[in-house]
Design a binder for these strands. Sequence first.
DNA 1: CCTTATTAAATTGTGCCCAATAGAATTGCG
DNA 2: CGCAATTCTATTGGGCACAATTTAATAAGG
Lengths: 165, 165
Amino acid sequence: MVFSVDDTWLLLDNQLCFALYATSRAVTKAYAPLLAPLGVTYPQYLVLLVLWEADGGTTPPGAPMTVGSLGGRLFLDSGTLTPLLKRLEAAKLVTRARSAEDERVVHVGLTAAGRKLRKKAEGIPAAMSCALGLNGDQIATLRDPLRKVLARLHQSSPAEEEVRD
Amino acid sequence: MVFSVDDTWLLLDNQLCFALYATSRAVTKAYAPLLAPLGVTYPQYLVLLVLWEADGGTTPPGAPMTVGSLGGRLFLDSGTLTPLLKRLEAAKLVTRARSAEDERVVHVGLTAAGRKLRKKAEGIPAAMSCALGLNGDQIATLRDPLRKVLARLHQSSPAEEEVRD
DNA sequence: CCTTATTAAATTGTGCCCAATAGAATTGCG
DNA sequence: CGCAATTCTATTGGGCACAATTTAATAAGG
């Protein structure tokens, strides 16, 4: 039995991209019950992860997070982040304020409630690891090649920054 | 230097789920220039893949595709598919028609233009393989564990079908 | 039969995502 | 300085994704 390359590669279940697309959606759905107690969506949770990190232990007042730096970490632009941050602000988890030095910039920070939410989130990674059926090694084994692909895609289509040759 | 487990696992760049989420979005974006000549989006392309398969060589008139069977393949429900199929219908690529035997069911089929589009799509998998920087083996090595995770997630949260014990 | 479940799609409402554009502030340069 | 590029955020508009509800048709049980 002979298949043409095209026939085989066009089959949905042979495609990596579809596996990626479907799994990503399924994972996001799997977060819903874990995030419900926190009252946030998965993209909102990602914003909080970045803010918790920036807020973190050593020398807390590093450069404050902005819409742009958040977008740099999450690969999202203001078109997505602005309304999302407004919802987090309405939920009283984050603050948004124009920078005094540069009025173009909007600083994003955690409220006390937002900081406090971190405690309730600490069990989530372990719960997801269990839901996915993967241990730490297996997670790394899957994560690292994905980050390689991601880096390559961002290289060929950089998120607006200068491309150095 | 000692990190608590929670600290390490909450770091964005350690998370598999974020790598999945970010890579999936980047991949969808990478499809845009490849799909632009066909005039469809990535989810619309996925629907066409399923229809092309069902339309395919051996014994063409297998059971006709329906909104439900399409959703079964793509893990999407009518809330997503109905408007998407209406757009594909408006683009004259697919047909939608109530089944005569069961008026609840909507048959989805390809128009001549939809069938013809397959030719223009045949180069896409190879182009993506190149854009991702992965050969066939590497694609399989990444795809198969993703499908395992996907299967597990669909098992714990089945898409509405009966759960057998 | 005839009523009650069940099923398939469609609809509604909320929240992403992203491209394109617009506004406003700042920077660079002549 | 003055003004043209640049930068940062917000806005607009289209297209997913999904939960929850609705509508219509069929199946099942008494």
